[in-house]
C-alpha cells in the first residue's frame, strides 16, 4: 500500500485531476535557431527540451550509413536539477542508452526514413524538470521537434502513460503515482491507423487489468494527439505568411490551386 491516498473521495487524484484527465500541456516550436528543429514541451511539471539535427550526412564512419533509409540517433539526458534531489545522471549509462533505443524504436515507426537514404537524423532530448511520465514527454517533444525540422512523418506519434490506483485506471501518471509501486503502462500510438508504435510495462499487473489499462492509455494518447495537432496548427498559422509571397503573385491563383477536400 502506498503511503499516500492516491485517489481521494469522489475520485480526485492528488494533484486534483479526475482519473482520465491529462495534465496541462504547453508547447513551443522552434526554440533553438541553430538547430534544424526544436521543441519545448511541458506536461504538468514535467518539462522537456528536444532538438533535431539533420537529416545530414552520416557522421562517424561510412559503415554506419544505410543505403536505403535514414539512421535515427537519439540521445536522452536528464539534467542534474531535474528531480527533487540534485544528482548528476550518467549520460552514457545503462538507463539512458536503454531509453535511447526505445525512442529510436518509437520514432522509426513514424519517420518516413526511406526518403532520407544515407542520412542520419540526430534527436537530442533533455529533461529539464521531472515529474513522472518522463519518457512520454520525451517522445512527444521529439515528435514536435521532428515536425519543426520539416522531416516527413507518417503520423504524429504521441505517447501516454497509465497506471492502476485502487482498481481504477488513471492516465498521465505523475511522479507520486509512478513511485507508488503499481504497474505503469506506457503506450506510443500512431493515432491515424490506431497502430501501437511503442509499448512498455513497468511492474507487475494482473492480466485482467491489462485491457482496461491499455484502453485508458490509448485514449490518453488520442487526447494528447488532438492537443498537439492544435498547437502545431497554431504555430503554422503564425509562421506561414511568407507562403503567400513565395508563390507567383497572380491574384486568385491560390483559390484555384486549393485542392478540393473530400
Amino acid at each position: 500500500m502506498a503511503a499516500w491516498e492516491l485517489l481521494k473521495d469522489q475520485n480526485f487524484r492528488l494533484d486534483g485531476r479526475k482519473p482520465t484527465e491529462l495534465r496541462r500541456i504547453e508547447t513551443r516550436l522552434g526554440v533553438f535557431p541553430n538547430a534544424d528543429g526544436s521543441a519545448y514541451l511541458e506536461q504538468g511539471n514535467t518539462k522537456v527540451l528536444a532538438t533535431v539535427y539533420g537529416p545530414h550526412e552520416v557522421k562517424g564512419g561510412r559503415g554506419r550509413s544505410n543505403p536505403d533509409k535514414a539512421v535515427i540517433n537519439c540521445q536522452f539526458s536528464k539534467s542534474a536539477f531535474s528531480s527533487s534531489e540534485r544528482k548528476t545522471h550518467m549520460k552514457f549509462g545503462r538507463n539512458s542508452s536503454e531509453t535511447n533505443q526505445h525512442l529510436v524504436q518509437a520514432l522509426n515507426a513514424a519517420v518516413m526514413s526511406h526518403l532520407y537514404a544515407r542520412c542520419q537524423i540526430d534527436v537530442y532530448v533533455e529533461i529539464v524538470q521531472s515529474d513522472g511520465s518522463d519518457f512520454c514527454a520525451c517522445l512527444n517533444a521529439s515528435t514536435l521537434a521532428l515536425i519543426d525540422a520539416g522531416i516527413a512523418l507518417k503520423d504524429i506519434v504521441t505517447c501516454c502513460s497509465a497506471t492502476i490506483v485502487d482498481e481504477k485506471s488513471v492516465v498521465d501518471v505523475n511522479y507520486v503515482e509512478e513511485s507508488s509501486g503499481s504497474a505503469v503502462l506506457i503506450v506510443g500510438l500512431l493515432p491515424k491507423d490506431e497502430q501501437i508504435a511503442y509499448m512498455q510495462m513497468k511492474g507487475r499487473l494482473h492480466a485482467d487489468h491489462l485491457e482496461k489499462l491499455l484502453d485508458c492509455a490509448v485514449e490518453g494518447c488520442r487526447n494528447i494527439n488532438n492537443i498537439l495537432k492544435e498547437r502545431i496548427g497554431e504555430h503554422l498559422k503564425t509562421h506561414s505568411s511568407h507562403f503567400t509571397l513565395t508563390r507567383p503573385a497572380t491574384p486568385g491563383r491560390a483559390e484555384r490551386s486549393r485542392p478540393a477536400i473530400a
Binding site: 515536425i147 503520423d155 504524429i156 491515424k192 496548427g233 507562403f243 503567400t244 509571397l245 485542392p259 478540393a260
Partner: peptide, 23 residues
C-alpha cells in the same frame, strides 16, 4: 492578415489532403 485574400491550405502530418483519385 495577408492570408485573408489568398487563403492557405495548411496541413500537418497525417492530415488528409484529398480523397479524389487522379492526383
Amino acid at each position: 492578415d495577408f492570408s485573408a485574400e489568398r487563403p492557405l491550405h495548411l496541413v500537418i502530418p497525417g492530415d488528409i489532403i484529398t480523397r479524389e483519385a487522379g492526383y
